[in-house]
């Protein structure tokens, strides 16, 4: 068991409490004496709480011998982690942009940023060419060839 497991288990426990709070607020209607909309969620909350408790116990039991290795959490260094978070952020921005200015306008600049800043593509020509090529290519295949609607943007 990894050292991080005990923290994950604690978080999951807290989450099941929070989720349980919302479950308690669900409407409790029933039909023909059968369980209502709250029943199944309660079973799940119970199961999650039980399982995360088990995880906590096992990680406490077996965790001692491995607890001296701080790099155990997936082998990802701090530097890399920062980069991952940044990429998540860029992807999120991309999605927000597509929703608002549309697929064609949003995709090109974001891809260029990803290629140059994230993936470290050095050449401008290749960067611009690839970003434009992917944008146009997907537009062509989806919109023109297959007729699948693409997100068009809220603003215009």
């Amino acid at each position: 068991m990894k050292r991080s497991d005990r923290w994950v288990a604690v978080l999951l426990l807290a989450f099941s409490v929070w989720w349980g709070y919302h479950t308690a607020n669900l409407p409790s209607a029933t039909m023909a004496n059968a369980p209502g909309p709250r029943f199944f969620p309660w079973v799940l909350v119970g199961a999650l709480a039980l399982l995360s408790l088990l995880l906590l116990i096992t990680s406490l039991k077996t965790g001692a011998d491995e607890s001296r290795r701080p790099e155990a959490n997936g082998g990802i260094g701090r530097q890399k982690l920062k980069k991952h978070v940044a990429v998540f952020f860029i992807i999120f921005i991309y999605i927000v942009l597509v929703e608002n200015i549309g697929f064609r306008l949003a995709t090109f600049p974001i891809l260029l940023i990803i290629l140059r800043l994230v993936m470290g593509q050095k050449s401008w020509v290749v960067g611009i060419g690839t970003a434009a090529g992917i944008t146009m290519g997907i537009y062509l295949v989806f919109r023109v060839l297959l007729g699948v609607p693409l997100p068009s943007g809220n603003l215009w």
Partner: peptide, 17 residues
């Protein structure tokens, strides 16, 4: 460089579609 940006765009388009 070509593959994964394409997959990202595909995911957005696909989830929308």
């Amino acid at each position: 460089y070509y593959l994964y940006p394409t997959i990202l765009v595909l995911c957005v388009v696909g989830a929308f579609a």
